[in-house]
Amino acid sequence: MNIDLTTKIGELRFKNPVLTASGTFGYGLIMEEFSDVSLLGGIITKSITLKPKVGNPAPRIVETACGMLNSIGLENRGIDNFLEDILPGIRRFKTNIIASIAGKDEDEYGLLAERLDRQVSAIEVNISCPNVKEGGMSFGQDISSTKRVIKKVRMKTALPVIVKLTPNVTSIEDIAKVSEDNGADAVSLVNTYKGLSIDISSRKPELGSFTGGLSGPAIKPLALYSIWKVAKNIDIPVIGCGGIMNFNDAIEFFMAGASLIEIGSATFREPNAALKILKGIKHFLKTKKIKAIKEIVGTVNEN
């Protein structure tokens, strides 16, 4: 049986719905040593900023029950380095390359989108990083800033625009709706949940920058709920992520309403996690005699 795993965001075709989440896969170059990157539906790069960014002080990682807090702080070498040194080396991947961008203000998001126009397959607008002082999550927590950033990006590029949403809001479905109304082609959710961990002997936070973002299986039910709420509220595709560890988790996300998924922290445990999950999805569909992934999207039985 031939299973149709393809899906679309705007006019952009994906050969399968498994993407790798920003910040968990580098730019694909290192990961090539561990898995065949070209078999993925797409890779989403580490977030790119206008100027190089050194990131946050150590420790940047702390493990928590069934998950981890991170506070990397968007360490990256900036857009010039990406376009000149990284992109030429990853164009050969036979998969969609989605550039994640993060700006300090809407003009920076606009400039980044302009520089990336026609260079990559799509842009993921990161308005949800909980670990930077300027910009980041503060955009995604406010309806009018979300609107301003998306409008600016939309003006500067014809590429499909994906907006990555933060779950640290009262109603994520409203932010998703604003994204859709202002020209987003898809939304991806959730970015990490803001969290804290304290070392009781020193009374100090366990992360160098005090707080961090929680990811991993610990957040999966929360993420799934957000995706279900958002998918009901908008018509553009939803990319689901948050603690997906195996094909079973993945299928849950599709049933909740995700058209595509992003694999994040799972890659840290298992460099080959995304491809294993893809294999598991195919096997599940085959066993259940379902011909296309689209057939299960948003099919959770609500009666």
């Binding site: 990131g55 150590a58 990397i72």
Partner: peptide, 16 residues
């Protein structure tokens, strides 16, 4: 030694 998540250079958790 530093706390690290991936061990292969993609998480950038163990930067010095």
């Amino acid at each position: 030694e530093e706390k690290m998540a991936c061990g292969i250079g993609v998480c950038l958790g163990c930067s010095v």
